[in-house]
Computed example of a mutant assay.
Amino acid sequence: MEIEETALEVIAKHENGVFQNQLWKELNIDSRKCSRVIAKLLKDGLITRESAVDNGARTFLLKAAHKEEPCFELLLSGDMFSPCAGCRDACQPESCEKLTAWVLNLSKDNVDDQEASIIE
């Protein structure tokens, strides 16, 4: 495992972040090597860094960057994609047949999920 991967794992396991001066001690590397590792992780967008003070010493607080992935599941109802996504119709939601069918399918999905959990 490369040192960058190890460093990223250590940073990620600290939910509130880890100080850079603690990281190089935890990784058992010198501060210069740690700075190069941090620079690469920053360049790749895998971590964030903000100025901080730890025991009176200036350092940086490092946190794992949380990349938001598209969540298309929220637009799905069974195998139906939300009819409103990209819709150009100037309809009223209360009278849209496509939206009504999609919402009813959502309700059906919830009932199916509840029945499945009762059977188990």
Rank of each mutant, 00 (worst) to 15 (best):
D113T: 10
S51I: 03
K67V: 15
A85H: 13
V37P: 01
E5F: 07
A52T: 09
N110E: 15
K40H: 13
A52H: 11
D54R: 12
E68N: 04
P83R: 02
D113P: 04
C91P: 09
D30S: 00
E68K: 14
V111D: 11
V37F: 08
F81I: 09
S35D: 08
D30E: 04
H66G: 04
T100C: 07
C96Q: 05
F60R: 10
E73K: 10
L61P: 01
E73F: 12
L27R: 00
K63D: 00
E115I: 06
C87K: 01
M1P: 07
L106S: 13
V53L: 09
A65Q: 06
K25D: 08
I11S: 08
V10D: 08
H66P: 03
Q22F: 09
C84G: 05
E120P: 04
V53H: 08
V10I: 11
T59Y: 02
E4S: 12
I119F: 11
I3D: 03
L99M: 10
A57H: 14
N110K: 13
A57M: 08
V18T: 06
G56A: 04
K13M: 02
V53I: 15
L75A: 14
A64D: 01
A116S: 06
N21F: 06
T100E: 13
V18C: 04
S117P: 04
V103A: 06
K25F: 12
A90V: 15
F81T: 08
L61R: 10
I119S: 13
C91T: 12
A39H: 07
I38S: 02
I119W: 08
L27H: 03
E120H: 05
P83D: 04
S82L: 05
P70L: 07
L27G: 02
Q22V: 09
N28H: 09
R36A: 05
W102V: 09
H14M: 00
A57L: 12
A52N: 10
R36E: 09
E15Y: 00
C84S: 03
D30P: 02
L76D: 06
L99K: 13
S35K: 12
D79S: 09
L41V: 06
I11G: 05
K40Y: 11
N28F: 10
E97S: 07
E94W: 02
I119G: 04
A52K: 07
S77V: 01
S31M: 11
K98D: 14
A90F: 15
T59M: 01
A116L: 03
K108R: 15
L42Q: 15
K108V: 07
S51A: 13
S95T: 15
T100G: 07
A64T: 00
N21M: 11
G56D: 01
L62N: 05
C84F: 02
P93D: 14
T100F: 07
R88M: 10
L75C: 10
L42R: 14
E73C: 14
D89P: 05
V111S: 10
R49H: 03
L106I: 12
T48V: 04
